[in-house]
């Protein structure tokens, strides 16, 4: 693994947050642990994305902004052993039957494969949860085979059913609850991804690995 890290870039997100830009998702998740562990005064919470970390703070609780930024800089450069991101492998059973796979035909056509070949290819690889967002518990997964990259619908569907597994461009993910969306639905899982009565409320966390298994039901 290359040890030289590109310069860490911190940009303001309005007057109460900054975004830390890092080279990749690993670095984003590691920076989240480092910054949480550093307990920098004023930091309220962190929210990782693909290759960045949103850091929300209380402007009244920091001495100076420049000092705050350098605290973040040094925390994200620290060699904090506790900052290791644990990555669990989680299997998601899914049905890819015609009734639930609303756009499987379209994805197959685009990839010039049969629907069966699409599902085989989709289930053969391991994905990584880059971040959770869009709706509560929605995992943005990286690792989609290039052949399955399919553009989003020009007009989003009014409602995509809960549990839908979908492809949007080079991204793939699972809709935890029914919501509008423009991604191509290729299957559905009965697994509950978000439960507000649990803490943490999500099944999948950033950094986890995901594999889909074909259920026969």
């Amino acid at each position: 693994m290359p040890r030289s890290r590109a310069k860490i870039d911190i940009v303001p997100l309005g007057d109460s947050a900054v975004v830390l830009r890092v080279p990749n998702n690993d670095a984003a998740l590691k920076a989240q642990r480092q910054i949480e562990n550093a307990q920098i005064a004023g930091v309220i919470e962190c929210a990782p994305a693909y290759d960045s970390l949103g850091i929300f703070y209380e402007p009244g609780a920091i001495e100076s902004f420049d000092q705050f930024v350098s605290q973040i800089q040094s925390a994200s450069k620290s060699r904090d052993r506790r900052a290791k991101v644990d990555s669990r492998l989680i299997e998601i059973p899914a049905s890819f039957n015609r009734e639930v796979a609303l756009d499987l035909g379209l994805v197959a056509q685009h990839a010039q494969l049969s629907p069966d070949e699409v599902v085989d290819l989709y289930c053969r690889v391991e994905y990584r949860v880059a971040c959770i967002g869009f709706t509560p518990g929605f995992p943005y997964l990286i690792g989609l085979p290039k052949k399955l990259i399919t553009p989003r619908h020009a007009t989003p569907r009014k409602e995509i059913p809960a549990g839908s597994i979908a492809i949007g461009g080079h991204q793939t993910g699972i809709y935890p609850s029914a919501s509008p969306g423009g991604w191509n639905v290729i299957g559905r899982t009965p697994v509950q991804l978000f439960d507000p009565n649990n803490d943490p409320p999500v099944l999948l966390r950033a950094g986890d690995r995901v594999r889909f298994t074909r259920s026969t039901s």
């Binding site: 309005g14 994305a49 960045s52 971040c131």
Partner: peptide, 29 residues
């Protein structure tokens, strides 16, 4: 752009060119 954090107050401009001022219930990224 790759998706990243947004916050209440962020003014986004979707492809339509018509801005949206995000409020408290906005999505996280």
């Amino acid at each position: 752009l790759t998706s990243e954090a947004v916050a209440p107050g962020t003014i986004q401009v979707p492809p339509s060119g018509q801005p949206i001022v995000l409020l408290g219930d906005c999505q996280t990224i």
